[in-house]
């Protein structure tokens, strides 16, 4: 069903729900990475990176993107804001 029609009728739409659920299931099936593994990966990454640079652990996001049948792990790691006046 077209998106405008869905909005227009505003009815619960089980096909949409099926599609959203499938999207998530397929990501995990294709990569063998479940949410638990992702969390562990995130912790390990944070630890390693923190050894070298100051980062904002709470703002780090790690996500799986897919383009066609290709999967890509994307990490967004904001650095800690430096207060230059305190340096030197």
């Amino acid at each position: 069903m077209s998106d405008w029609l869905k909005k227009f009728t505003n009815q619960p739409n089980s096909a949409n729900e099926a599609k959203e659920r499938l999207k998530l299931v397929l990501i995990h099936d294709r990569t063998d990475i479940n949410p638990e593994v992702m969390e562990k990966l995130k912790d390990d990454l944070l630890k390693t990176i923190s050894h070298h640079i100051a980062i904002e652990p709470e703002s780090v996001t790690i996500s799986m993107l897919h383009e066609g049948r290709e999967q890509r792990l994307v990490a967004d790691i904001p650095l800690k804001h430096y207060d230059r006046s305190k340096v030197g």
Binding site: M1, A15, A18, K19, K23, L26
Partner: peptide, 19 residues
């Protein structure tokens, strides 16, 4: 059923499977 929104349509399936 597709029309009613209760079955995945071809476009949905192709997008998910990317073939």
């Amino acid at each position: 059923m597709v029309q009613r929104g209760d079955m995945l349509d071809a476009e949905d399936v192709l997008e998910l499977l990317a073939i």
